[in-house]
Design a protein around this nucleic acid. Structure first.
Length: 108
DNA sequence: CTAGTGACTGTTT
DNA sequence: AAAACAGCCACTA
């Protein structure tokens, strides 16, 4: 099992409720500032029913990815975030200035 | 090993 | 503001 996946999952798990983190933030948190893409890949392979709150991970623009994959899934993610307390604007975008969670603690 | 792909990002048109 | 380009990393064929 690649440690990269475990690192990503661990970082996502420590995201507090009501907050969202960008792929870049997760990548930087695990010590790889330019691995945002790989982070997305790791989350993509994540199975349903996992303990990892993958719905709290969004792209840097504050929008939900997967737009070209399945509108159903994106809607589910938006609903989950709203339930957590995250507010979306008219364009389905999150205000990262308010809900954007900065790792605050870089891992050694 | 090389080549192609992708839940990304920052810079440049 | 939106679209295009290039860069980085992990995975698959």
């Amino acid at each position: 099992m690649p440690s990269f996946y475990q690192d990503v999952y661990r970082a996502v798990r420590m995201i507090p409720p009501g907050r969202v983190a960008t792929y870049g933030a997760i990548a930087a948190m695990i010590g790889r500032p330019m691995d945002a893409r790989a982070v997305g890949y790791a989350l993509r392979a994540l199975p349903d029913g996992t303990d990892v709150p993958w719905h709290r991970v969004i792209n840097a623009k504050g929008t939900i990815s997967l737009k070209d994959r399945a509108p159903n899934e994106t809607s589910c993610q938006r609903t989950l975030l709203e339930r957590e307390g995250v507010e979306f604007d008219a364009r389905n975008r999150v205000d990262l200035r308010r809900h954007g969670w900065m790792g605050l603690l870089p891992e050694p």
